[in-house]
Computed example of a mutant assay.
Amino acid sequence: MERISIPLQLRVVQSQPGLVEQNGKWSTGLCECWGDMDDCCCAFWCLPLFVFKTNRAAGGCPCLPLLDCVGCGTAASLAMRAAVRERYGIEGDVCSDCFYGCCCYPLSWCQISREIKRQAAVRANAISLSSSKTHYTPLVDLDHVHLI
């Protein structure tokens, strides 16, 4: 019986798909609500629901938005804005998060929502591109081989 030699090809993942160069800036400005009118309208007509929805999409504690409702300042806004900045490498500090949370509360939540959506879309696009480039080679070439 003849032994078949098969070349082994290994693919090494050197970086995770979907990581985005952010350049330390938000993908949209604070007042760029026209880019996502659904979120803008939802935030305008029912801000508590929008805050809860955005907090949930970001993976935050479900009870965190309740702190804003009971008058504990803007704890949820501050925490979520800081978490999103940290996760995506966006420049800023606690003072700017507090300022935007206090003075531009609905706009800040809309910006957080747009950033989460953009990062998710970029990650999904990168994953689909990397999976479409994958070419599998068969383990054994069975041409002209009799199994029995």
Rank of each mutant, 00 (worst) to 15 (best):
K53I: 05
V51E: 06
L139M: 08
D39R: 11
S77D: 05
C61Y: 04
L66D: 06
A43V: 01
S132V: 05
C72P: 03
W34C: 07
R114E: 00
P138T: 09
S130H: 06
W45T: 15
C40K: 04
I148R: 10
T137N: 06
R85W: 08
S132A: 12
A121Y: 10
A82F: 04
P106G: 01
E21C: 09
L139A: 04
G29N: 10
I4H: 14
C63P: 00
G101T: 02
A82Y: 04
A82P: 00
P7V: 10
L142M: 14
Q111G: 05
L67S: 07
K25I: 12
V122I: 12
C40R: 10
T134N: 07
E115L: 03
N23Q: 13
P106I: 04
N55S: 11
P138R: 05
G59F: 03
D68T: 00
R114F: 01
E21A: 11
S113H: 15
K117T: 13
C72R: 02
E91L: 14
S27I: 05
A76L: 00
A83G: 02
A57D: 14
A120D: 15
G18N: 00
L10T: 11
S128P: 03
R3Y: 15
I6H: 08
E86I: 01
I116M: 10
I4K: 14
G24F: 06
R114V: 05
V13W: 09
S27W: 02
V140S: 09
G29H: 08
Q22N: 13
P62D: 01
L78V: 07
M37C: 13
C33E: 07
